[in-house]
């Protein structure tokens, strides 16, 4: 691991975006997440790492209430976005998800044109006032997702016809188009080849200027490359959370050390 790069990494912001306190998640009788406390900073890339089944994806999905779509899932504790509890009864999960966007493990473009894929979010949230406005949002999002040059001549071709890496960047553009404040990414590169992965990672670093990004990844190298802060999950517990450089070079918990040196996982 490139230690030089890791120590150079500095966190630009100290402002807390999402604050999780004593979060418990249950799937039926299974206690999937136990007592998780974490502060996610604004304009920062936070990586969740840990072995399979450790609950990192589950925890990620509680941050925009995607777990609501699963009947048997139950969340306890408090998750505050800008100081407001997102599990409060008055919060509409639909509006929350417009603020906390999500990119999934497998690219999942809708069976529509590239343009309509990106315009989907702005349309349902009424973000564009005119056709020209919408065109501009679509272009800005596609540029933001570093895919504009590849698709600008075929905006009305189906999004499903793109390559895997392009599809994933299209999905990122789609998420960016609703101007979220936080972008959740659930193993966004696991279905991509190394070149496409590199492109998406560069993109994540750029996105940090505008949003807070939370990324779940299986690849520790990826976590080290893209994130400023890293959280290590194990068996539903948050074991250690801190600066990425510190986690990878000088972990305090013996479990973290075992994992990053490859002894568990």
């Amino acid at each position: 691991m490139n230690d030089m790069r890791l120590t150079e990494r500095k966190v630009d912001s100290k402002e807390i975006k999402i604050e999780a306190r004593d979060v418990q998640v249950f799937y039926g009788d299974t206690h999937a997440i136990k007592d998780v406390n974490v502060d996610i900073l604004d304009k920062t890339v936070t990586a969740f790492i840990g072995p399979s089944g450790c609950g990192k994806s589950t925890f990620l999905r509680t941050l925009n209430r995607m777990n609501d779509t699963i009947d048997i899932c139950r969340v306890e504790g408090a998750i505050n976005l800008d100081g407001e509890d997102i599990y409060d009864k008055r919060v509409d999960p639909v509006q929350l998800r417009a603020k906390v966007g999500m990119v999934f493990q497998k690219p999942n473009p809708f069976p529509k044109s590239i343009y309509d894929n990106v315009a989907y979010g702005p349309r349902i949230h009424g973000l564009a006032q005119s056709k020209a406005d919408l065109d501009e949002i679509v272009e800005r999002s596609l540029r933001g997702a570093a895919i504009w040059n590849e698709v600008k001549d075929r905006l009305h071709a189906p999004g499903t016809g793109l390559s895997g890496g392009q599809q994933q960047r299209l999905c990122i553009a789609r998420a960016v188009a609703t101007s979220p404040e936080v972008l959740l990414m659930d193993e966004p590169c696991s279905a991509l080849d190394p070149i496409a992965t590199g492109q998406v990672e560069d993109l994540i670093d750029e996105l940090r200027e505008k949003f807070s990004v939370v990324i779940v990844t299986h690849s520790m190298q990826q976590a080290a490359r893209v994130s400023q802060r890293t959280a290590f999950f194990h068996l539903g517990n948050l074991v250690e959370y801190g600066e990425t450089g510190q986690i990878f070079t000088n972990p305090t918990d013996p479990r973290t050390e075992s994992y990053i040196t490859g002894r568990i996982g």
Binding site: T69, F110, T178
Partner: peptide, 18 residues
């Protein structure tokens, strides 16, 4: 229709009927 389609749409803040 794959569940990932629904997730993608819900993840963008679409309601069920949308």
């Amino acid at each position: 229709v794959p569940q990932t389609m629904r997730d993608g749409s819900y993840g963008l803040g679409a309601t069920r009927s949308e």
